[in-house]
Design a protein around this nucleic acid. Sequence first.
DNA 1: CGGTCTTATCTCAAGGCGTGAGTTAAGTAG
DNA 2: CTACTTAACTCACGCCTTGAGATAAGACCG
Lengths: 409, 409
Amino acid sequence: MPERHRRTVRDLRRGNRATLLRRLYFEGPLSRQELAAHTGLSSASISNVTAELLADGLLEEAGSVGSDGGRPRTLLRIPPGAGSLIGVDVGETRIRVELFDISMTELARSVHPLKDGGHGDVTHVVRLIADGLAAVCGADVQRGPLLGIGVGVPGIVAEDPAGDGAVVHAQTVGWDAVPLESLLRSTAQLSSSTPLFVSNGAKTLGQAEMWFGAGRGARDAVIALIGSGVGASVITDGSAYGGAAQGAGEWGHTTMQLRGRRCRCGARGCLEAYVGAEAVLERWREAGGGRAPGADEESALAALLASEDPAAAEVLAETAEYLGAGIADLVNLFNPERIVLAGWAGLQLGARLLPAVREATAAYALRYPAARATIELGRLGTDAVTVGAATLPLNRFLTTGGAPQGPGG
Amino acid sequence: MPERHRRTVRDLRRGNRATLLRRLYFEGPLSRQELAAHTGLSSASISNVTAELLADGLLEEAGSVGSDGGRPRTLLRIPPGAGSLIGVDVGETRIRVELFDISMTELARSVHPLKDGGHGDVTHVVRLIADGLAAVCGADVQRGPLLGIGVGVPGIVAEDPAGDGAVVHAQTVGWDAVPLESLLRSTAQLSSSTPLFVSNGAKTLGQAEMWFGAGRGARDAVIALIGSGVGASVITDGSAYGGAAQGAGEWGHTTMQLRGRRCRCGARGCLEAYVGAEAVLERWREAGGGRAPGADEESALAALLASEDPAAAEVLAETAEYLGAGIADLVNLFNPERIVLAGWAGLQLGARLLPAVREATAAYALRYPAARATIELGRLGTDAVTVGAATLPLNRFLTTGGAPQGPGG
DNA sequence: CGGTCTTATCTCAAGGCGTGAGTTAAGTAG
DNA sequence: CTACTTAACTCACGCCTTGAGATAAGACCG
């Protein structure tokens, strides 16, 4: 790669556009004055750049606010119609496609259920996604130009060395090096200039909580995602939001008990084998707990939480200890200021077990990082994977300053 | 913090100076031509910037090399005398201070042994460091201006919110919020314009291996450091070297066995309680193994490795399994392309156990990231903590492009 | 109602910077 | 000695940010 780092004087303008856009996006309407103070740019430059952005339709004036006796400040904001975004959630049981405006208000959605093992037929999955895209794009709603598409998937996402875009490795659903990006581009006939991002669903949900949920404002945070499986999303130095260096997080397959319970990944003693919803229910069954026939995991877990059975209490206490210790690992490794427990099972378990989890974390983590970290529940519910996925092209939009630069190179 | 991101056109020049310096530092002598190709800058800019750097004495011409018939390329390099660096290793048994020239050639050193528990008296430790600094600075060697000082310490380093510089929390040696930076600045009477960095010793050693050792060239790597205790240094996106976002790493206190062995940190089942040298020897003792009276840990570990006792083999096999599983955690969490096993105990154990460790890692990690990661031994030995520490001011030098900007603000 | 004050925003000339084309420097091949 | 090739430098141009000053827009006071 011959090129690196910024170069020409033009990048300055791009960078400043991006800075202003990002600030305006997250900190609501601001006056030029405040922008100058926050960004350190001179007021002259603010005028120039905002004039450009206004001309591009990326900004609009939004009333004004008095100033002790002087000319009132004109507030600026990004109009919701400045663009639209699509987020896709390739979940364990369904595929959801949602269309958002730039303020992440949902404009349309399309959901396809997916049978167990339905992931095996990749072509079918891709077709479902493409249908969903077509459906939301065809929806009769007012919206700006499409800024891009984000897709959240299970497993690990890597870049194809042959330049074929994102490739997905998802051991648990049987995907081995699936070139999802190129498949989707051709199946959905996407223009090559449409930004398309593929990322791990847990990371994606993490970004949603970081930007709009419980992680908002934190610099270093970890989003722990517990569903049937377990994942985590690590955000370090999230200052200015999208500057965030995102770490992956197959946290669920971290060893908590050497030679312990068999995990569906093949190894033994993984965290997921203890605190994943599937594993918790399995452990309850082993302890003699019942599961209403035909009940899905979600209601079965609710039943466990509601049970008065001492065996259930024991299972839950152990779950809290494992979860706390698992979180302690993250605390020790990353020293985050905030930990957000999310995912459907995480929210269910957390509502009841949070105090016990906090206690276990304090017991297993080192004192100093433990004192710094707070543990909270996620605020966005389970459906935020699409929001997080849509966040990917949104981040690109904010980072490039809405520049009309095709991703050809 | 009101200011963020780049702003003025002057930062461009600073950035380009930095880019050129960094490239020249790591990729040896290069011609202006090659610099242009690598950095994407126009040859005109290369001429301008290099002329400036030459005038500042930060660059020198170093011969020339023919070019198929045309004018030969003049090679440029950073002269070793462009500056000097000091690295300090606050170790478990001694304090080492070393002076390097900019190419990391050692010019002088000073070592003070430290008795067990000697860390408790912080003032004394600081005095020893200051004496060491004075000693190496007084050494009669040719050297350039001092570019800065780096200090590697055990434990976690944080920034004092009151602006008092780095504060060290090291549970294992009894340091609780020690404001090492300000103590050292006043005791050693450092000018406030002398860059002084304090960082975790494991991170520091990690950076040394990344820049000059087994990690060289890797983008994402983890340096696992095993001594009496266990730490890790995580480097993500190390492209262009110092762009590296360094994650901390109290990896040693990650839980491997819930409710397992008691660790010196107070928790149970930590990795360190199984694979730290102290723990390994303790486990050998429990298994009936002997330890020559008076032998230090290093030779005791060597004796264990040399032992033909089946109990010893058992202890080692278990150690390899724990270590492998611990590495698997890192593999799953960070998906690194390379893992470097370092630290004195890590090197000793690794020399013998590396195949078993690799096997255990493969068994415990997910297939895809495991296939990507290679596990290697460190190349720099145990004394590289000072090199790594010196790397901190060096990194600053390369990042600022050697700008004469005092760190006042 | 007009004058004065205060504050926000715009305008403009100046100074920096990177670029690309053209020029000069420094060799080789015949 | 000449033609050719390649490296490095020079210069006019366009773009960027800045700081100072001009202008806009309201509040306060008499």
